[in-house]
Amino acid sequence: METLAILLLATAFLLTRTSRLATAVHILLAQSAVVAAACAVAGWQAGETHMFVAALLTVVVKAGLIPYALLRLVRLLRREREVNPVIGANMTSLAAVGAMVLAYGLIEHALPAVISRDAVATAVALVLIGLLLIITRRQAIMQIVGLITMENGLYLLGLSTTRGLPLIIELGIFFDVLVAVTVMVILAFRLKRSFQTTDTSILKRLKG
């Protein structure tokens, strides 16, 4: 479990470094695969079959369908990359490290009784880093990647505190995530067609 937590933090950290969209999606794929592995390990330790179903769903949805859809979109965006993020890669990495420290600090204070401290702290760090990516990155794809990172963090949080939500709710969440990414890919595709770019910093006509 500790190894998996370190791997997850590494993927999140790498996400703050890359400016290539395809690389970001591949890192996201790896991250989701690790989350699925964590889910399977936790399920094996707890001896609960429904967690294996959840792990399988994670593989299919978050390591399969979502990266597939994103990569198809990325292929259309050959010349797009994260050129001018709100804060640069170095500062983002620094902020990500700060997020990890903050996550551990929060867990010490807020949930001292929790069993798997590392997993929970990793989960909170993933949520924070995902949020950081959404706020600081201008490329639509990078924002989607940030959103899935947040979602992965929340999933891990549920896994490590409560052994996952009941399967019916979990199924609903998976379905929502899948539809959300589909909707966002459609929008990003249209952005490319209407604005010739998926850099969302051009979206500032509506105000007041």
Binding site: A140, Q143, M184, T200, L203
Partner: peptide, 15 residues
């Protein structure tokens, strides 16, 4: 409508 302002609004909304 999939025009520019509608896309901008939808993107902000969904994010």
């Amino acid at each position: 409508y999939f025009n520019r302002p509608a896309l901008e609004a939808a993107w902000k909304y969904v994010m």
